[in-house]
Design a binder for these strands. Structure first.
Lengths: 121, 121
DNA sequence: ATAACTGTATTAACCACACTAGTACAGCTG
DNA sequence: CAGCTGTACTAGTGTGGTTAATACAGTTAT
């Protein structure tokens, strides 16, 4: 479910946050379904519970999950999150298009990449 | 010429590296022209010479500049660098297009962003 | 009720990394 | 020779991520 990449320069808790964001946004985790407990996930990943706790706090702050004392942490349902994500992607694209223009890449070339789909990784 | 953003999470030396890459790739610094000396630039930016030294070492390693003992550091000319940068941008675009597809953004929408150019920031 | 599970909070320690400070050496140039 | 360049090294500082241990609060199953 969650994989930690120790070659990744970003902190562990951030990787955990990002991974759950992805799972939730793509509906791979249904709303109100329960997340692994702080201690369990920490065991699974062989890391400290505090690190998971930090990731969960962040996810809750961002509205991806909600936590209930004594019960657990659960997936929130929030349509706005998906919309925000889409907007974020389009913004990134805008930045990228700007950079491409500055380096003399034709718009046609960008469109080719998009239309070709993604074959290899 | 160079500006440091202390709110940026990335280290100073990395910001310096990136800024010079940009200046060189966009031909705002001509090949064989001299860069500010390690000590001077450090003074200008009110940071430690070692930090600039580190940035310059990295830039030399990547082929953006060359340094000569006793003389200074100079802009290298390397066509491949521009090609690499373009390739890098196209790769990022490919990744972005992939993500967009996964989140249900129509290709048409992406193309709109590209064709519209960049109006506001 | 009690055990076993949940989230939450706090404190201390460790470690890696960016950065600073100071000094020194090597080489070019006026 | 003085003053500039790049380069190297050591030592110290501060921050941030992570670990460790403990404790408290609340739910659930037996």
């Amino acid at each position: 479910m969650i994989v930690i990449d120790y070659r990744d320069r970003r902190p562990i808790y951030e990787q955990v946050v990002e991974r759950f964001q992805e799972l939730i946004l793509k509906n791979l985790l249904e709303p109100d379904s329960q997340l692994p407990s702080v201690r369990n996930l920490a065991m699974d990943l062989s890391i400290n519970p505090n690190t998971i706790q930090r990731a969960y706090s962040e996810l809750e702050r961002q509205g991806y999950i909600y936590s209930v004392m004594g019960k657990g942490s659960f997936v929130a349902e929030n349509i706005r999150l998906v919309l925000n994500k889409k907007e974020e992607i389009l913004n990134e694209l805008k930045q990228l298009a700007k950079a491409a223009e500055e380096y003399g890449i034709a718009k046609e070339e960008l469109i080719n990449v998009i239309m070709d789909g993604v074959r290899e990784e």
